[in-house]
Write a protein that binds this DNA or RNA. Structure first.
Lengths: 330, 330
DNA sequence: CGTTATCCTGTAAACGTTTACGATACAATC
DNA sequence: GATTGTATCGTAAACGTTTACAGGATAACG
């Protein structure tokens, strides 16, 4: 059914070696045979089988990326950046979302046997699994994840903008009580932010911010806020793990006729496009999502192609964006 | 460096055939040798090379999906559904975004040589390229795309909700002049909606809706609305190709102090989570994005595994969601 | 004409699997 | 003891490619 190099060779009346040479433009081939082979290739619509090539070349020509899941603009941005770089460099992209599946380890290990290198995001799988894969020889770049051994990593800055944000909220607006909506155990970025928030609160002798554990979708934020509303007195400011959670919080507060920022302040993280538009505009922190994917791909490809395993950890800067939801006049 | 079946065989003191048998649990193998082999596998941390398997089995164990790009929750939902089904069925997922690249045809053809089947969305590549790939024998499912030959397809309903929407806007609210923001030449879904809109307008003896060509991101909607604002009298209602475009329109109208829906009505499409939350809440049409991915994957896998090329075209239903932005009291 | 260099092309091995087939050993049956 | 059957395991081919190597033809040179 499918046409192989043999079919082409037979049709052109040459050996498969010659077909391969023509196809790849290597070695010596006379103009006449070259023409014959090209004609045969065209006639049969031959495309080389990537598996055969991969087996021979010991290269898959593919990169893998492991997401915790795909929801939201953050992951979309990362994927976009990564895919773009990969395709430009001639690689295909395999995606895997772990979704907290039990079998994540198996799936990731399996994925590792069909790519030349992989980017692993966040808390998708245990450190030991990653180490095992790295030991087996395939390059790994960690993305928005805590360090493992000396594996290279890419992440965005969390601590500095989190401190900036908290300082702004306490110093400029005078808020003294906080709640944090998110799950520091799931995402590394959130862990860092949660730590920074606590640090500032402690330094300023505030009560420990209340942690409301929730997922990262709008719906999760909605539920978390509702839960918070049943728990008696509200804090002065709600720090949300990302903008979508903040949107859910908006929803719950609106339903309860609680005004932002007059009665309570809300902040997000990621600065997705809608945050500027929503009412009131959401104070957030801009992350270079696409650049994260870009950089991870570049780094990975560099390691694959130059075998340069120099351990570099890149941190991209994030920018605090103040808007009306924290009490500012923007 | 990487450990192959040979290494395992040597360590266990058996032939590679036996290792394969143990690994796959087929054929007869005595308990003792089985134990030896398993010990060796564990000790060396052996995972079978997918390429070797693929070459032998003549199956890649992978599905490809071609997007026009990744922006927005729509594509995220589709990918999520597709990936989930694929992984559950034991397939990996390769993604490719064409981004209107010149070389799309080459990239897609190349992709086709490393998957067992592929899902092709929208206007990502020419019909002839797709036909050529289909002719070469690999199964294809079209997603949200116009029909090609008798290739199976999956899409969501556009015409019915578009007519419903237009009927509502004209009959219930009495709007007589419209503009449509989007690009019917890019997305098939949008083509269908644009046609339906025109049909209703014509039936009701309205002026032909004005087409403002723009992309599908918030920013595109913003620019399109600004352009519209410089063109003299505004229509009574703006029909946006998706919710993100509508968000951009909101932004532009707000900057010009034009109130929605009092001075102008706005509608979107997709009903993304934020649309309920934004002010005013956006009238939109709910599409089952995840289900689209689900179904496409299921269909593709079925074709691959049963060679059943029965030509079915599935149309998932969409639901009109009326909110305040069109003038309703919701 | 003999030697050598150059150009072209074919042969065969290798990549890592799976699996049909055959070989061996041993038990069971007559 | 000869025959047959069964359980186990190894040999080798096959999948589609690339490429080192060798071989043959032709041209160049003495």
């Amino acid at each position: 059914m499918t046409v192989t190099i043999k079919n082409v060779a037979k049709l052109a009346g040459v050996s498969i070696a010659t077909v391969s040479r023509v196809q790849n433009g290597v070695g010596q081939v006379s103009p006449e045979t070259k023409a014959k082979v090209l004609a045969a290739i065209r006639q049969l619509n031959y495309v080389p089988n990537r598996i055969g090539q991969a087996l021979q070349k010991q290269r898959h020509g593919a990169l893998g990326i492991v997401f915790p899941d795909f929801s939201g603009p953050y992951y979309g941005g990362v994927l976009l950046g990564l895919e773009n770089q990969a395709v430009t460099a001639g690689y295909s992209v395999l995606v895997l979302a772990t979704h907290r599946r039990q079998e994540s380890a198996r799936l990731i290990t399996e994925l590792s046997s069909r790519v030349d290198g992989m980017v692993i995001m966040d808390r998708t799988v245990s450190d030991s699994t990653i180490s095992a894969i790295a030991d087996s020889g395939i390059p790994i770049v960690l993305l928005a994840r805590s360090a493992i051994g000396d594996l290279p990593s890419v992440r965005s800055e969390n601590q500095i903008p989190a401190i900036e944000l908290m300082t702004h909220l306490t110093k400029d607006h005078g808020y003294r009580s906080f709640a944090f909506l998110g799950d520091p155990q799931i995402a590394y970025d959130v862990t860092e932010r949660w730590r920074a928030v606590n640090k500032v609160a402690h330094e300023q002798n505030l009560a420990r911010p209340k942690l409301i554990r929730c997922g990262y979708r709008q719906q999760d934020g909605y539920q978390a806020a509702q839960k918070l509303l049943t728990q008696g007195t509200l804090p002065q400011c709600l720090l949300c793990a990302n903008d979508e959670v903040a949107f859910g919080v908006y929803q719950a507060l609106r339903e309860n006729n609680i005004r932002i920022p007059d009665e309570i302040a809300v902040t997000g993280w990621d600065d997705i496009p809608t945050s500027e538009l929503i009412s009131p505009p959401l104070t957030s922190v801009q992350q270079p999502t696409q650049q994260l994917g870009d950089l991870a791909a570049q780094k990975l490809i560099q390691i694959i192609e130059t075998e340069n395993t120099r351990l570099e950890n890149d941190v991209l800067s994030s920018r605090l964006v103040l808007r009306n939801s924290c009490g500012c006049n923007h």
